[in-house]
């Protein structure tokens, strides 16, 4: 498999914005040309080759070795092929991604999948705040694609997301699904306070009753609906290897909200 490998020469002390390295930029370039790509390191400009040792040839695969949480914007506007991150990733992982996939063996920072349009992001460790949320000052949150986090995630997961699916197999912090416009979000662990605050539409799935819900969510009772089976089966297929999901248990309790803003969202959970 042809591919390019970037290996950190030493852990940078300032943040590196790697978002210039898109799959489109790499197309048809040599390793040397890639090494000459200008990046921002802290408040100064430098070449990619100053920070990374570049080997291989650009192709359908980009591997980043020894990666640390200082490397932001990995896989930004990624449209085709794979990104493999050995170590941790910084903020804005997969920002504006439109296809392909990103696999992070460690943890990821904040704003994973911000403005993501399509593709698949898989984080084996934990992820930070604002997964699928729009970058500050921008209105476009996650608009498609799939994010799977095997560990825990921070606050504001799914904030203002519009489409796509986020699966957190661990716990999430506060304000999960806040201001959610639509889309689906499954949390297999615990959810923190202010779950779904200001959500307009969309679905949040939990495996057990939330410890706290805003007062503007109302009880709609337990149901065994065909959609639940479908949804659970899909989440099960995403959570490969995770035994938590059982689609045959398709009877879920439903809360509708947030009634302060439309209230067509729903929070589903097992109540038994």
């Amino acid at each position: 498999m042809s591919g390019l490998t970037l290996s950190l020469k030493e852990a940078p002390r300032q943040r590196v914005d790697l978002s210039a390295l898109t799959s489109a930029i790499m197309d048809g370039k040599t390793a040397k040309e890639i090494a000459g790509l200008k990046l921002t390191l802290g408040n100064r400009k430098c070449s990619l080759g100053d920070i990374f040792k570049v080997t291989g040839r650009p192709g359908s695969r980009l591997v980043i070795d020894n990666c640390t949480d200082k490397i932001d914007g990995i896989g930004a506007r990624w449209s085709d092929g794979s990104v493999i991150v050995q170590g941790n990733a910084g903020a804005y992982l997969g920002k504006g991604m439109t296809g392909g996939n990103i696999h992070v063996y460690g943890n990821a920072g904040a704003y994973v999948a911000s403005a993501m349009g399509d593709g698949h992001i898989h984080i084996e460790g934990d992820a930070g705040d604002f997964i699928g949320a729009p970058q500050a000052g921008i209105r476009v949150g996650m608009n498609g694609g799939v994010v799977r986090v095997e560990g825990n995630a921070g606050d504001r997961v799914g904030d203002q997301m519009r489409r796509g699916v986020i699966l957190i197999e661990g716990n999430v912090g506060s304000h999960c699904a806040s201001r959610m416009i639509a889309g689906s979000l499954a949390v297999l662990g615990d959810a923190g306070p202010n779950l779904g605050l200001g959500m307009r539409r969309g679905t949040v799935l939990l495996m057990k009753p939330p410890s706290h819900l805003p007062a503007t969510f109302n009880d709609c009772g337990s149901h065994a609906l065909p959609f639940f089976h479908l949804f659970l089966s899909y989440i099960e297929s995403l959570a490969e290897g995770n035994q938590t999901i059982d689609p045959s248990r398709d009877r879920l309790h439903r809360y509708a909200g947030d009634l302060a803003v439309d209230g067509k969202g729903e929070i589903l959970f097992y109540n038994y």
């Binding site: 109302n218 009880d219 709609c220 009772g221 609906l225 439903r254 509708a256």
Partner: peptide, 18 residues
């Protein structure tokens, strides 16, 4: 509609599911 029990004026008691 049982799934809208919490959302609108409802004719259904809490134990009605269909």
């Amino acid at each position: 509609c049982p799934t809208l029990k919490g959302l609108t004026h409802t004719e259904l008691s809490p134990d009605t599911e269909s």
